[in-house]
Amino acid sequence: MIEFARTVRLWFAPARIRREGSTPDYRFSLANERTFLAWLRTALALVGGGFAVDQFLPDLRWGWRVGLALALLAAGALCALRAVNHWVRCERAMRRGEDLPVSRFPALLGVVIAVVALAMVAVVLLGWEG
């Protein structure tokens, strides 16, 4: 948690990243940027999914519809914040010549999406009439 707070502080003092280590090959930086953008697209897709659940399953009971939509929206927001956090950590690791940070977030997100998908299958099959 302290480590996380330190990284968040780094978001808002970006000049401090530049002061560390040496500038890596620009191709590595651009690869890191593309990975960040891929995560951002994942976040946007989750946000879009939240909107879609709300709009394209109108026959669903209110609680289920809003619950699923909010779960997807929250996952999207979390994914976006995590994307920038991971980008900063990778950038710093590359400048210092360290190993890239490992993360359990992809596994967690996979499990969450699987649970939401299963819930949606169950809800669409069983709870359609509400």
Partner: peptide, 14 residues
């Protein structure tokens, strides 16, 4: 490299 302000703005916007 991508300026950190861009990355932060894009993520916070999302």
């Amino acid at each position: 490299a991508l300026p950190p302000a861009y990355a932060i703005a894009a993520a916070l916007g999302t």
